[in-house]
Design a protein around this nucleic acid. Structure first.
Lengths: 103, 103
DNA sequence: GTTGCATATTCATAATTGTCAATATGCAAT
DNA sequence: ATTGCATATTGACAATTATGAATATGCAAC
């Protein structure tokens, strides 16, 4: 398998380059949480948290479902596994490796 | 095992949020290359490549050794494995998970 | 020591990112 | 329909990032 496109992984990779978002991902690794409970763990403003949740949901790393007034956030394991597979792939020697293809 | 610090992984994670750098990592997955050979694969300026190589080496994702006038770049597998382990860890349920610890 | 090539650094600039205050929207209970 | 709480959006701003041109440095051959 070769890489079709590096670009498609950029949003998800960018999503994990912020300390707050990494902690949020870690917090969601055991199950779902609502925004207000996540906010309790940080000393950031509500709008800042909302911004981070948007980055995480738009990159499909976390799922968001509305439950009345609350939002319930959970990890999208398929996506996180996809990121891990991608990093594993590009850092591993491959039969059809990009470095073996004459350009 | 719990996370000591999310921050220490940020530089390496930021290093993989650029299409050019992802391709460079992929190119190095089969072995070492010098900057000029890497540059041949892109249509970017030499200074821009040098900037990207600096991001990659300073985050320890790639190793750089001088060989006469050339620089020989290679993947630091320990570091890439560390990144993969970290992402795996934060996205996996743990006994001492951050979400189970009352703050 | 000068020339030529490989790579790094500096500088300026445009684009992107993270943050908060203020405001808006969505929903449920009354 | 109003009030209250949960969350999202907007606007402004500071900080960071990616880029190339120009310049500097390192190294080897002559």
């Amino acid at each position: 398998m070769s890489i079709k496109s590096y670009a498609e992984y950029i949003p998800a990779l960018k999503a994990v380059t912020d300390e707050t978002r990494l902690k949020i991902i870690d917090m969601l690794s055991c199950g779902q949480m609502c925004a207000c409970d996540i906010l309790d763990e940080f000393s950031i403003s509500q709008s800042t948290l909302s911004y981070h949740m948007k980055i995480l949901t738009e990159s499909s790393i976390i799922n968001a479902v509305r439950d009345g007034a609350w939002m319930r956030y959970s990890l999208n394991m398929e996506k996180t596994e996809e990121i891990i597979s991608f990093i594993t792939l590009i850092t591993t020697e491959k039969d059809d490796c990009i470095c073996k293809i004459k350009s």
